Computed example of a mutant assay.
Amino acid sequence: MQFSFIVPIYNDGYLVQSFCEEFKKAFQNYIEKEEIENDVELIFVNDGSKDNSINLLIENSKTYKFVKVIDLSRNFGQHIALSCGYEKATGNFVGMLNVDQQEPPSQLPILIDYLIQNNFDIVFGTFEERKTSFLNKTTSKLFSIILNYLTQNNTPSNVTTSRVMNRKFVDAYNKLTEKSRYLPGLETWLGFKHGFTPIIHTERKIGKSSYNFKKRILMALDTIVSFSDFPLKLIVGIGIFVALIGFGLTFFLLISKMFITDYQPGYTTTVSLITFLGGIQIMVIGFASIYIGRILKEVQNRPLYIINETYNFK
């Protein structure tokens, strides 16, 4: 197999048929063959969809010979669903993209050619402007900036979901064993040669993304804790800062009592200090508990995902 592409599905199976049509046209033109199933596989990973997505995926796997379907036993998350697809992919070149066609399948050959011509190991698409709402643009950019800072990552904020990797890169990724996964961070950690090239980014034609503001916040927290110990270092810094404030305040009260006036601490000052220090302590305990929970998750060493059924795999 020459090319494998992974597409995670969560409650958006209604987009699959039109996506498959566009994908087929794109690769018929690219490899100049009418039948593409011997050269290309399109692997959909159903990540515990709660609607009839799996039935729609099965129907399309019967219609299109190049379509394969993996049905996970429950929702494991997009990055784990993609990891499942990477492990099952057999192509010399492996890519990923979303089913919403905001980055059309017709752009994949651009990524493939750029990777081959420049001898890169992984190539990401980039866009000039995200075709989405102002809120999504703002939160996505802010999310990217904060994550890059906290995880010490340097991923550009205008990177698209679509990317293509060679076999060497995918094999290296498949050797990773951690249970909590943040793909951009892991892709950076793996090293190798990274490339970026512009591709078309369009508006979503049907439906809306399942990534609302709440999910973005939860994913940001999950990502930071999974991939960085920076919050723990930040907490140490806050602790030192608070200790210095406490030392300074104590020194001021002593000097005030000895040389200025017999200082009588007030109710407001006492309550404010207790509340402030109590909040810092709760935050420290909370972050430590999250990291301990992640250690437990790794020590349990449960499978990364569970497959319920596969379709069209030989």
Score class of each variant (00 low, 15 high):
residue 151 T to C: 09
residue 210 S to A: 12
residue 14 Y to T: 00
residue 220 A to F: 12
residue 26 A to R: 02
residue 56 L to I: 12
residue 47 D to E: 03
residue 303 P to Y: 11
residue 22 E to R: 10
residue 19 F to S: 02
residue 195 G to L: 14
residue 288 A to P: 00
residue 166 N to T: 00
residue 36 I to P: 04
residue 305 Y to H: 01
residue 100 D to Q: 06
residue 64 Y to A: 03
residue 248 G to Y: 04
residue 69 V to E: 13
residue 65 K to E: 01
residue 15 L to E: 00
residue 178 E to V: 07
residue 154 N to T: 08
residue 66 F to N: 03
residue 50 K to A: 10
residue 172 A to S: 15
residue 140 S to I: 04
residue 33 K to F: 06
residue 3 F to M: 00
residue 242 V to N: 10
residue 277 L to Q: 02
residue 35 E to K: 11
residue 190 L to R: 03
residue 66 F to P: 04
residue 133 S to P: 12
residue 276 F to S: 06
residue 137 K to W: 07
residue 56 L to M: 15
residue 80 I to H: 14
residue 56 L to V: 07
residue 229 D to E: 14
residue 46 N to I: 02
residue 143 F to D: 13
residue 136 N to V: 15
residue 72 L to C: 13
residue 273 L to H: 06
residue 308 N to V: 02
residue 129 E to T: 05
residue 116 I to K: 15
residue 281 Q to F: 15
residue 277 L to N: 04
residue 172 A to I: 04
residue 124 F to C: 09
residue 289 S to M: 06
residue 202 T to D: 02
residue 33 K to S: 11
residue 36 I to D: 04
residue 179 K to Q: 11
residue 217 I to Q: 12
residue 50 K to D: 06
residue 10 Y to E: 06
residue 245 I to Y: 14
residue 244 L to H: 14
residue 257 K to T: 09
residue 30 Y to T: 13
residue 197 T to Y: 15
residue 71 D to W: 14
residue 43 I to F: 06
residue 88 K to V: 01
residue 33 K to Y: 07
residue 195 G to Q: 14
residue 100 D to N: 11
residue 97 L to K: 03
residue 183 L to M: 14
residue 87 E to A: 07
residue 212 N to C: 00
residue 135 L to E: 13
residue 233 K to E: 07
residue 213 F to M: 01
residue 65 K to G: 01
residue 145 I to E: 07
residue 155 T to P: 00
residue 70 I to Q: 10
